[in-house]
């Protein structure tokens, strides 16, 4: 299911992660690989401690970073769909 601006997204509940300084490091499902998120990606991950509607997430990011609404929406949707494909986040079960 594709994530759009109205989707409510959350962290994948089975995912194991650790903070390494400013970076978020995630352990893959097979426990053999690790993925690091830094910068804005790390910030988005921190925000997803609570489930968020993508629109709301975008508004919050615009308050923190100098980015146009269109650019933010475009980049955020690309990033979130990529994260969903990697099983790092999912659409909130109420909406799936």
């Amino acid at each position: 299911m594709v994530i759009d601006l109205e989707s409510k997204v959350q962290r994948h509940p089975d995912l194991v992660f650790a903070l390494m300084g400013e970076e978020v490091v995630m352990m893959s499902e097979d426990q053999d690989n690790y993925l690091g998120l830094n910068g804005v990606a790390s910030k988005i991950w921190t925000m997803l401690e609570e489930p968020h509607v993508v629109n709301v997430l975008c508004t919050k990011l615009q308050q923190e970073f100098e980015v146009s609404k269109e650019q933010c929406e475009q980049d955020l949707l690309f990033f979130l769909n990529d994260m969903q494909q990697k099983k790092l986040i999912q659409i909130h079960p109420d909406e799936a």
Partner: peptide, 15 residues
């Protein structure tokens, strides 16, 4: 124990 070690490395040395 790999998962618990990963979590504990984060807790012990993350910052």
């Amino acid at each position: 124990l790999e998962k618990i070690h990963f979590i504990l490395i984060g807790k012990s040395f993350g910052h």
